[in-house]
Nucleic acid binder design. Structure first.
Lengths: 151, 151
DNA sequence: ATAAATGCAAAGACTTTGCAGGTAC
DNA sequence: GTACCTGCAAAGTCTTTGCATTTAT
């Protein structure tokens, strides 16, 4: 996985805002803050986490707005819903292209994995089933080394 | 995917009951009915569906018991929690070994997919991360041919 | 100006839990 | 007989929705 330098994130932020504006969507301060928070988050935040981070800058933002905005961003293809987790769905705004994850079922840590063949595999599935494929999800569950030691 | 003949399902039912008994768990009529229903179900039933099917034979079985039993069977490794779906988690009692799924986001249809390399891929992930892997989940989302025509 | 977005609170869907009574062993 | 299981209802989470108010354009 290529390193994510700040410059590319700034570009991506601008590009996202551009696309939203082009579709006639309004760039409210809340939306701006949410997009920024998702992009800046190194991991795979829940809606709760996004909300908490935003409250620093925009203390009046409601959880409902975060839910609505996250759903919007997902519908627009700007972020990825990972969809697992005991405390709600997790989102990934860094790499909207799906990629495999390794998830610790003890502490919840999530690592990004690399699988070059993935697109080919999915394309083969699409061909054999006749489905028009939109996305996919590949998650591996286990116990991370740290939890194994302390467990 | 090899065809599932009735004989192998009967064997599997007996084997599951055997293992549960060996662990000192009680074989109540409700549990028996739930295991049977999960094994007999050709698809990937939700807890609601399992409950509805059981009500024919054991009309007093509560939803809570189905939840508890399904959690038990999952913990014992006898069934697989697929974990997606708008109306609750889905379960697979036919092949507790994880396998990829193709899911229609329009009508909810779920196909089982075949990927021979999957165990190797997961083993490689385990090796590179140091995780002790328990299970995995590989779901592909799209629109099935039927929905595409009528859409 | 006005159509769209926010925030609040209430409702919804799925799941878990506590406990009294029942039951497999 | 006893530890375990069931069923009920209540509570818990996460998420969505309706509507009056605010706001980006």
């Amino acid at each position: 996985m290529e390193p994510l330098n700040p410059a590319s994130q700034t570009d991506r932020l601008a590009a996202i805002l551009e696309r939203l504006k082009a579709k006639g969507l309004r760039l409210t301060p809340q939306r701006l803050a949410i997009v920024k928070a998702v992009l800046a988050h190194p991991g795979h935040p829940t809606v709760e986490q996004i909300h908490r981070e935003i409250l620093n800058d925009y203390p009046t933002t409601s959880l409902a707005t975060v839910y609505k905005t996250v759903a919007l961003l997902k519908a627009e293809g700007e972020i990825l819903e990972l969809g697992f987790g005991e405390q709600g769905s997790r989102y990934d705004g860094l790499r909207p292209r799906p990629h495999p994850h390794m998830i610790c079922s003890r502490c919840g840590e999530i690592l990004d994995l690399e699988l070059d063949d993935l697109d080919d595999i999915v394309a083969r599935f699409a061909a054999s089933t006749g489905y028009a494929v939109d996305s996919h999800r590949f998650d591996v569950f286990g116990v991370c080394p740290r939890c194994r030691e302390s467990g």
